[in-house]
Nucleic acid binder design. Structure first.
Ligand SMILES: [Zn+2]
Length: 339
DNA sequence: CGAATTTGACCAGCGC
DNA sequence: GCGCTGGTCAAATTCG
């Protein structure tokens, strides 16, 4: 078990890093393209790649023009979630209902009991505990962090995927380390961490309360190693990183989206770099749905439909902090362990 | 037997 | 200052 001293979420983050940081280029590893196996040993979960099997992140006709739903309120881009909940789900009726998932979703054994999806926000009863016992764990994280607390400053990417299974194989091995009930959702949220030694990438998976078919996967951090799965083959161990990204800290635009993206033309590629292992493929689908905007202006949602299998995939990318990218990447593959 | 998961406890941040 | 909530840890358990 993670007995090693966690680096406390190596964040340290943006508030800690100086604005001008242009010294090294993050050599991100290869994009998810190609070395993903359709199978990876997933037991009952379908892999992303499996669902689609393509990977055109750099040239997909993404639509990153957030229409900007409400400009009246300007949620602080610094915070993680907007205080005011808002059910702007805007769930269309296209894929509102789908056949019940025959396959049993992993995780979830006790909760997931109630499944009443109602817009009303007053069901769910958080677990709540309240009483503490003894066992005082004083050995927690405490090394750095002496200034503003406010942790969690790294970029996060949320992917919305339409899938019956939540375990989207992305080419990495994850260890579940927690699960919590979501406030307004009957579905729990699972917390995963990359099993790699020095890789502190975390992943959060939860189902949309509105659309049980939608799985929201939020990645946090960057992997410092290539996809473990399928290793041992006979292929290139480390593809040459030749990606460009990294831009000066874009000021908080009304968009929230990295200005670099718009300024330059590296929107997609950038994403590719940013995204850890986005196993999704953005083929030129007909895009049944235009674009969805979450409550955050910093969140772009791209939806892709894949009627062929009856499952549509939605990819939502939310970018927030930039800059720590290098923080994570610079370390480059310090150590790579395989499994 | 080892690795992964489960699950309650614990804790920090934020709102009131 | 208290309470709520999200997030993480870690012991126990299950799985392979
Ligand atoms: Zn990793």
């Amino acid at each position: 078990m993670m007995v090693e001293k966690r680096e406390d979420e190596m964040e340290a983050s943006a508030d800690a890093i100086p604005p001008p940081f242009s010294s090294q280029i993050p050599s991100t590893f290869p994009l998810p393209g190609g070395f993903f196996d359709a199978d990876g040993g997933d037991k009952g979960s379908v892999g992303f790649l499996e669902l689609l099997g393509l990977r055109d992140l750099n040239q997909s006709p993404f639509l990153f023009e957030l229409p900007r739903p409400t400009s009246a309120v300007e949620p602080p881009p610094a915070t993680s979630d907007p205080p005011p909940r808002l059910p702007p789900p805007a769930e269309s009726s296209d894929t509102a209902n789908f056949p019940a998932t025959p396959s049993s979703i992993s995780s979830s054994s006790t909760e997931a009991a109630v499944n009443a999806i109602k817009p009303a926000a007053s069901s769910i009863t958080n677990g709540d505990e309240g009483e503490q016992a003894k066992t005082n764990r004083t050995t927690k994280e405490e090394e750095k962090k002496k200034k503003g607390q406010k942790r969690q400053r790294e970029p996060r990417f949320a992917f919305k995927t339409r899938s019956e299974v939540d375990h989207l194989e992305d080419g990495y091995r994850w260890r579940k380390y927690g699960q919590k009930a979501v406030k307004n959702s009957p579905y729990p949220r699972s917390y995963y961490r990359c099993t790699s030694a020095a890789c502190g990438v975390k992943k959060r998976v939860e189902r949309s309360s509105e659309d049980p078919a939608v799985v929201v996967t939020t990645y946090e951090g960057q992997h410092t190693h290539p996809s473990p799965i399928r290793a041992r083959g006979a292929h290139q161990p480390l593809p040459p990183p030749s990606l460009v990204l990294l831009e000066p800290p874009p000021p908080p635009l009304g968009f929230g989206f990295p200005s670099s993206v718009r300024s330059k033309d590296v929107h997609l590629p950038l994403l590719g770099c940013y995204l850890p292992p986005p196993p999704l493929d953005f083929r030129p689908m007909t895009a049944p749905q235009p674009l969805m905007l979450t409550s955050d202006p910093t969140t772009a949602v791209a939806i892709s439909g894949d009627p062929r299998h009856g499952c549509n995939r939605t990819a939502e990318v939310s970018i927030r902090d930039h800059g720590l990218l290098q923080d994570l990447i610079p370390s480059k593959i310090r150590k790579e362990e395989e499994l």
